[in-house]
Amino acid sequence: MLPAHNLLDEAAVIYKVLGNNTRLMILYYLRYQEKAVAVSQIVDDLGLAQPIVSKQLGILYRYQLVCRHKKGTRVFYALDDPHIVEMTDGMLNHVRHEINDEPHPNK
Protein backbone atom coordinates (compact mmCIF):
# COMPACT_ATOMS: atom_id res chain seq x y z
CA MET A 1 0.00 0.00 0.00
CA LEU A 2 1.28 3.46 -0.89
CA PRO A 3 1.70 6.01 1.90
CA ALA A 4 -0.85 8.82 2.04
CA HIS A 5 -0.12 11.83 -0.18
CA ASN A 6 0.22 14.17 2.79
CA LEU A 7 2.93 11.92 4.27
CA LEU A 8 4.79 11.80 0.95
CA ASP A 9 4.53 15.58 0.63
CA GLU A 10 5.95 16.13 4.11
CA ALA A 11 8.73 13.58 3.51
CA ALA A 12 9.68 15.45 0.34
CA VAL A 13 9.91 18.69 2.33
CA ILE A 14 12.18 17.05 4.92
CA TYR A 15 14.38 15.65 2.15
CA LYS A 16 14.72 19.19 0.77
CA VAL A 17 15.76 20.40 4.23
CA LEU A 18 18.33 17.60 4.37
CA GLY A 19 19.56 18.55 0.90
CA ASN A 20 21.98 21.10 2.38
CA ASN A 21 25.40 19.86 3.46
CA THR A 22 25.74 22.51 6.18
CA ARG A 23 22.51 21.35 7.80
CA LEU A 24 23.66 17.72 7.55
CA MET A 25 26.99 18.67 9.13
CA ILE A 26 25.18 20.36 12.02
CA LEU A 27 22.90 17.35 12.54
CA TYR A 28 25.83 14.96 12.62
CA TYR A 29 27.71 17.26 14.97
CA LEU A 30 24.73 17.37 17.36
CA ARG A 31 24.37 13.60 17.14
CA TYR A 32 27.62 13.10 19.02
CA GLN A 33 27.07 15.71 21.73
CA GLU A 34 26.07 14.46 25.17
CA LYS A 35 24.00 17.55 25.90
CA ALA A 36 22.58 20.62 24.19
CA VAL A 37 25.25 22.85 22.65
CA ALA A 38 25.41 26.65 22.45
CA VAL A 39 25.43 28.21 19.00
CA SER A 40 28.86 29.72 19.72
CA GLN A 41 30.26 26.23 20.40
CA ILE A 42 28.84 24.91 17.13
CA VAL A 43 30.39 27.87 15.30
CA ASP A 44 33.79 27.23 16.90
CA ASP A 45 33.78 23.46 16.48
CA LEU A 46 32.59 23.45 12.86
CA GLY A 47 34.51 26.54 11.78
CA LEU A 48 31.46 28.15 10.23
CA ALA A 49 30.28 31.74 10.42
CA GLN A 50 27.75 32.47 13.16
CA PRO A 51 25.06 33.87 10.81
CA ILE A 52 25.25 30.71 8.66
CA VAL A 53 24.95 28.41 11.68
CA SER A 54 22.07 30.42 13.13
CA LYS A 55 20.16 30.43 9.84
CA GLN A 56 20.59 26.68 9.33
CA LEU A 57 19.64 25.92 12.94
CA GLY A 58 16.50 28.00 12.44
CA ILE A 59 15.51 25.88 9.46
CA LEU A 60 16.26 22.64 11.31
CA TYR A 61 14.20 23.88 14.25
CA ARG A 62 11.28 24.88 12.04
CA TYR A 63 11.08 21.30 10.75
CA GLN A 64 11.47 19.78 14.25
CA LEU A 65 14.84 18.19 13.53
CA VAL A 66 16.50 20.04 16.42
CA CYS A 67 15.15 21.41 19.68
CA ARG A 68 16.41 24.47 21.51
CA HIS A 69 16.30 26.21 24.84
CA LYS A 70 17.51 29.59 25.94
CA LYS A 71 19.65 30.37 28.99
CA GLY A 72 20.14 34.08 29.39
CA THR A 73 21.32 35.35 26.02
CA ARG A 74 22.63 31.97 24.86
CA VAL A 75 20.64 29.47 22.81
CA PHE A 76 21.39 25.75 23.09
CA TYR A 77 20.52 23.13 20.49
CA ALA A 78 20.21 19.35 20.47
CA LEU A 79 18.82 16.75 18.10
CA ASP A 80 15.05 16.53 18.40
CA ASP A 81 14.81 13.23 16.54
CA PRO A 82 17.95 11.08 16.32
CA HIS A 83 16.16 8.84 13.80
CA ILE A 84 16.64 11.48 11.12
CA VAL A 85 20.42 11.05 11.33
CA GLU A 86 20.06 7.26 11.29
CA MET A 87 18.03 7.62 8.10
CA THR A 88 20.76 9.82 6.66
CA ASP A 89 23.29 7.10 7.53
CA GLY A 90 21.49 4.90 5.00
CA MET A 91 21.89 7.53 2.32
CA LEU A 92 25.59 7.97 3.13
CA ASN A 93 26.07 4.20 2.83
CA HIS A 94 24.36 4.32 -0.55
CA VAL A 95 26.62 7.16 -1.68
CA ARG A 96 29.69 5.34 -0.39
CA HIS A 97 28.80 2.32 -2.54
CA GLU A 98 28.19 4.51 -5.58
CA ILE A 99 31.45 6.43 -5.19
CA ASN A 100 33.45 3.22 -4.75
CA ASP A 101 31.52 1.47 -7.55
CA GLU A 102 30.63 -1.36 -5.17
CA PRO A 103 27.51 -3.51 -5.26
CA HIS A 104 24.86 -2.77 -2.67
CA PRO A 105 24.50 -5.37 0.10
CA ASN A 106 21.10 -6.65 -1.10
CA LYS A 107 22.15 -7.32 -4.69
Rank of each mutant, 00 (worst) to 15 (best):
G19I: 03
A38G: 08
I26T: 00
N21P: 11
Y15F: 13
L18S: 05
T22C: 02
K35P: 13
K35N: 09
A49G: 07
L48A: 02
V39T: 14
N20Q: 06
L48I: 04
D45A: 12
G47R: 01
N21M: 10
K55Q: 10
K16M: 13
D45K: 11
Y32K: 08
G47E: 02
A36D: 15
A49Q: 05
Q33M: 11
Y28S: 11
Y32A: 08
V39I: 13
V17Q: 01
Y28K: 12
L46M: 04
A49S: 11
N21E: 11
I52P: 08
P51E: 07
K55W: 03
Y32H: 13
Q50T: 12
V37F: 06
V53I: 13
D44E: 14
G47I: 01
I42S: 03
G19W: 04
E34V: 07
L46Y: 01
V53E: 06
L48N: 00
L46G: 04
N20L: 01
Y32I: 08
V39A: 15
Q33V: 05
D45S: 11
Y29W: 07
Y29Q: 03
L30E: 07
A38Q: 09
R31T: 15
I14C: 04
T22G: 03
L48C: 01
R31Y: 15
D45T: 06
R23I: 00
K16R: 14
A38N: 07
K16P: 09
A38D: 10
L46H: 01
N20M: 05
V53S: 05
L30A: 08
S54P: 07
Y15R: 14
K55R: 12
T22Y: 00
R31K: 13
L27P: 03
A49E: 04
L48T: 01
